[in-house]
Simulated assay, not measured.
Amino acid sequence: MFFSKVIDRLALYDLHRKRSTAKHFSSFSADITDREEFYKAHAAADVSINLSGSDADYKIGTFSYESLFPSGNLVNDTLEGEVYLNEDEIDKPNIIFVHGWRMDSYDRIKKIFHRRIMKDLGWNMYYYSLPYHFEREPEHSLYSGELMISADIDRTVESARQAIVDLRGLIHWIKENKAGPVVIVGVSLGGWITNLIATLESQIDVVVSIFYANRLSYSIWNTIPGKFIREELEQHGVTYEELVRYWEITDPSQAAPKVNKDNILLISAKHDQYIHLDDANYLWESWGKPERHLYNCGHAGIVLCRKKMASDTLSFIQKKLKR
């Protein structure tokens, strides 16, 4: 336990070496009454596939489309992710990977799953970019994801909305254009998005959420990664109780999943300093305790436990898709 916490603390120290210098605060103004309408994708995304290479039995390239819920920032409103399509792709499963906050590449996720899927399983893979990350990061942003989660209360909610609406648009496009099932695998903040979309989208066949965030308000107020955002909120008089209310619409534990509970796998770390186990437990219990693995590590288990993570995740998906 001590070793796991030390590794996480060192990583967090490095994380905060680069932090926002600009002030982001904005007060809450949204009046949200209908959760289903708020996150609704009114159409499939108009996805363009650009294949530029190959590797073994795979065609490799990018997919891109314009956001279905534009933020008004032109850079952020054009999505481009990586795609790996099996040459015999007709009925292959389609795996969408959703990355974590402040990641600036897909490398951490790829090191867990990528080669094993290509070598042993032959599934189609899509790497989805969250708002304000990667190529969607505006020029004035200090780091990838700075503008997605911040003390700008409204923009944080709208970023969650954009992430969900655009991800649903991609899922609908896959369902219309590919024959295989759709699987979503989210890591860290990507796990939060994955959990949230599982409460809204019935066309997902399997969900795996790894070291996931649950209540964004809890994470910002009670964990080290959120301490500077909390500090800015408090400077403007925002209380924890108010933030819970403002961000309730982004809370996956407020609704039951629309994905079959038997097809959901949750993975958490006992000594996680980024995402507290108490909050991860809250979601697991509110969802009726779907299958779960608890790893004896911290958040750094994304690196240190990746062989086990890959084995547990891919075995679960294979088992569910064989039914």
Results as ranks from 00 to 15, higher is better:
Glu231Ala: 12
Asp88Leu: 15
Tyr128His: 12
Asn86His: 15
Arg102Gly: 05
Glu231Ser: 14
Gln162Met: 13
Thr62Trp: 14
Leu196Trp: 04
Tyr128Cys: 01
Ala280Thr: 00
Ser129Val: 15
Trp247Arg: 07
Leu266Gln: 07
Val187Ala: 08
Tyr127Cys: 12
Ile317Arg: 03
Ile204Tyr: 08
Asn86Val: 01
Asn222Pro: 10
Val165His: 08
Gly191His: 07
Trp192Lys: 03
Ser48Pro: 06
Gly190Leu: 06
Arg35Trp: 15
Ser315Asn: 13
Ile249Pro: 05
Tyr58Ile: 10
Tyr65Val: 02
Asn76Lys: 11
Thr78Val: 09
Ile109Pro: 04
Val208Met: 07
Tyr246Lys: 09
Ser253Tyr: 14
Tyr282Phe: 13
Ala269Arg: 09
His114Cys: 12
Asp272Tyr: 02
Ile264Phe: 08
Trp287Ile: 07
Trp123Leu: 13
Lys119Asn: 14
Asp14Gln: 15
Tyr274Met: 13
Glu139Leu: 14
Lys308Ile: 07
Ile109Gly: 01
Ser20Trp: 03
Glu82Phe: 06
Ala160Met: 10
Ala151Gly: 04
His172Cys: 14
Ile171Arg: 07
Ala310Lys: 07
Ile174Gln: 11
Ser253Ile: 10
Ser67Val: 13
Lys111Leu: 14
Glu87Trp: 09
Ser144Tyr: 00
Val83Arg: 00
Tyr58Glu: 02
Asp312Ile: 00
Ile224Leu: 04
Ala256Ser: 15
Asn94Phe: 03
Gln318Thr: 05
Gly81Pro: 05
Trp287Met: 07
Trp101Ile: 06
Ala280Arg: 02
Ala179Met: 08
Asp46Met: 02
Ile171Pro: 11
Phe2Gln: 06
Glu234Lys: 10
His299Asp: 05
Leu15Arg: 11
Phe28Pro: 09
Leu196Met: 06
Leu10Gln: 11
Tyr295Ile: 06
Leu266Ala: 02
Ala310Trp: 11
His133Met: 13
Ser4Thr: 01
Pro225Asp: 07
Ile95Val: 15
Gly226Leu: 03
Ile149Asp: 00
Phe113Asn: 04
Phe113Met: 09
Asn73Asp: 02
Lys40Asn: 03
Val259Gly: 06
Ile264Pro: 01
Ser4Arg: 00
Thr78His: 14
Leu85Glu: 08
Lys40Gln: 02
Glu36Phe: 10
Leu79Trp: 03
Glu137Arg: 11
His293Trp: 13
Pro257Met: 07
Ser4Lys: 04
Leu277Gly: 06
Ile95Asp: 12
Asp91Trp: 00
Asn195Asp: 11
Leu266Met: 08
Tyr128Asn: 03
Arg108Gly: 15
His299Val: 14
Ser105Arg: 08
Ser188Tyr: 03
Ala310Glu: 14
Leu121Arg: 15
Gly53Trp: 07
His172Arg: 14
Asp120Leu: 09
His16Cys: 06
Gly100His: 00
Ile164Met: 04
Thr313Gly: 08
Ile317Gln: 03
Trp192Leu: 13
Gly61Pro: 04
Leu170Arg: 12
Glu82Gly: 11
Ile249Arg: 00
Tyr13Gln: 11
Arg155His: 05
